[in-house]
Write a protein that binds this DNA or RNA. Structure first.
Lengths: 215, 215
DNA sequence: ACCTGAACACCGTTCAAGT
DNA sequence: ACCTGAACACCGTTCAAGT
């Protein structure tokens, strides 16, 4: 049996179709944008019939949920890895967490959109996606509490650590989205300096909170 | 000619089709989400043939750009109106601007997505949309500068007012998106208190910057 | 000038039939 | 158990033909 025949003769059962669909869909998303992921195109690229993916995903939304889960896991892994590089002071770790979050968003714009663009998938449909997402949030809250205990962030009864963490996460999230949506140039940030500038913009707010700690 | 006949007999030329398409599309977006706006469904609702809208909009993207323009105008009008209610101190006006921005986003989630969801339309395709968007940005920068001059925000050579304004806008933008994407409950914010809590979360950051002003 | 309606090339989704 | 391929009901977009 010649090689060309072996290559041409696809087995009737793919065997790894589910994972192949996820990988191809993520690739397609990074290429052309998350809103352009089509099940038919994915099937075509894999060399399988148009109905085949439906054996593994109930519908388009289920596939998007699956790739959002994959993207969220990657964000979590990236953030947890970067944190080990940071210094021991809680406030420095908190900044490192923010920078890591921003860096990941700038480097994987489509995946970042996937992680947060609720309209594209079933937000609560994947427990493990929710879990990865929550892990990053819990880490933020924990570092804020540690910084409060270390006297590096203010501590007030009317302002729980969770709310302070929310303010900072919102700032990081907003900066990431503004970059991805191409809004930074309007704010005087040259394209080449986006990363440095979003770091500074976030640090400014963290330092402000730290200053509010001093009596 | 009986009334029913007059009602049934549509004129061949609609006359106001362009505006009717924009209004219907916005309505459809508020009903079912911005990603579900279909030219055919819009045409159907207006009672016009499927090809008719193409006389007024080159393609789907051009229609989305038009409704994004309309939504951005409404945001600008809302923000400029609310600012007149605020006190005279620049820092209070700045907070009022932030609250107004947040309120508008929470009250018009779909329109807010439209204003910022670059993927849905041609971001630079409408000069007047860019103008409305820019007006709100310029207002933010102006208020930050005024607050700096009044000694209510820090002033540093390495941190132009524009970057400080960017930090605050990012926080407001992030809070709005987190609410729209249903993330606030995870951060301990009960659904009914979203508005009050996002106001507090933004104020916390503004107050932090103010504190950084004191030597 | 503006609108109709058929046409084309796409989708998502279903399902009997094949392996 | 998994995949095929035709079928259906949708899209966006084009364009000759109608008013």
């Amino acid at each position: 049996m010649p090689t060309t025949a072996r290559l041409a003769a696809r087995p009737y059962h793919h065997g790894q179709l589910r994972q192949a669909v996820i990988d191809t869909a993520l690739q397609l998303a990074e290429e052309s944008g998350d809103e352009r992921v089509s099940l038919r195109e994915v099937a075509r690229r894999i060399g399988v019939s148009s109905g085949a993916p439906f054996r593994h995903f109930a519908n388009h939304e289920a596939l998007m949920t699956a790739i959002a889960e994959e993207a969220t896991l990657r964000l979590r892994i990236g953030v947890e890895r970067d944190l080990h590089q940071a210094g021991p002071a809680p406030i420095d770790q908190l900044k490192a967490l923010g920078h890591s979050f921003l860096d990941w968003a700038l480097q994987h714009p489509t995946s970042f959109r996937l992680v947060s663009a609720r309209k594209l998938f079933d937000f609560d449909g994947s427990p493990s996606r929710v879990g990865h997402f929550s892990a990053v949030r819990a880490l933020t809250v924990k570092l804020v509490q540690a910084a409060q205990q270390a006297g590096q962030l203010p501590q007030r009864p009317d302002m729980p650590a969770e709310r302070m963490a929310l303010s900072l996460r919102a700032a990081a999230y907003g900066l990431a989205r503004m970059h991805i949506d191409g809004q930074l140039p309007q704010w005087g940030v040259p394209p080449g300096q986006a990363q440095a500038e979003v770091h500074l913009a976030l640090d400014l707010l963290v330092d402000g909170l730290t200053a509010a700690q001093r009596p």
